[in-house]
């Protein structure tokens, strides 16, 4: 009888350990999923110039660009405007004409790098393509070069 009880306790301990491990793994997985990835660590899916980006839209191969939505792309362009609001910088790159630009909302850790920039500088930004309104919109951008 004593032996049976001992086996039951043993089982209980194993089940408890397994349960606890599952809970810990779930919590870790949940926390990992909660954290937004740093754009530096995300794979670049396409590199192009600002002109190529809008040319792609015009030739209605925008389907190709839509494939890159929610993916990291690199865009080379000329700084047209730098805005700062709520401790967040946004760089506007020149597009194909006055009405279409590339809006790059920067990652907060880029603030120091942005201070070195000036209007007219040619840069490469890497960011997550979110889509197009009048302008192309990239979030979580970093200065790649």
């Amino acid at each position: 009888m004593k032996f049976i009880n001992y086996r039951n306790i043993h089982k209980l301990i194993i089940v408890s350990i397994l349960l606890l491990t599952a809970i810990v793994i779930s919590i870790i997985a949940y926390k990992v999923l909660e954290v937004k990835p740093d754009t530096r660590t995300v794979e670049t899916h396409k590199s192009l110039t600002s002109k190529e980006l809008f040319a792609g839209l015009q030739s209605r191969s925008s389907g190709d660009l839509i494939d890159y939505i929610e993916k990291a792309i690199e865009v080379e362009g000329v700084v047209k405007e730098i805005n700062h609001r709520d401790n967040l910088y946004t760089i506007l790159l020149e597009g194909d004409n006055y009405n279409r630009q590339i809006i790059c909302e920067m990652q907060p850790d880029q603030n120091f790098e942005i201070l070195k920039l000036k209007i007219g500088d040619k840069i490469i930004v890497k960011g997550i393509l979110k889509g197009f309104l009048m302008d192309a919109i990239l979030l979580n951008c970093i200065i790649a070069q």
Partner: peptide, 14 residues
Amino acid sequence: VSILMRAFKFEKSL
């Protein structure tokens, strides 16, 4: 007004 839905930022990525 035109709003890009994917440009909404949440506290939690989930």
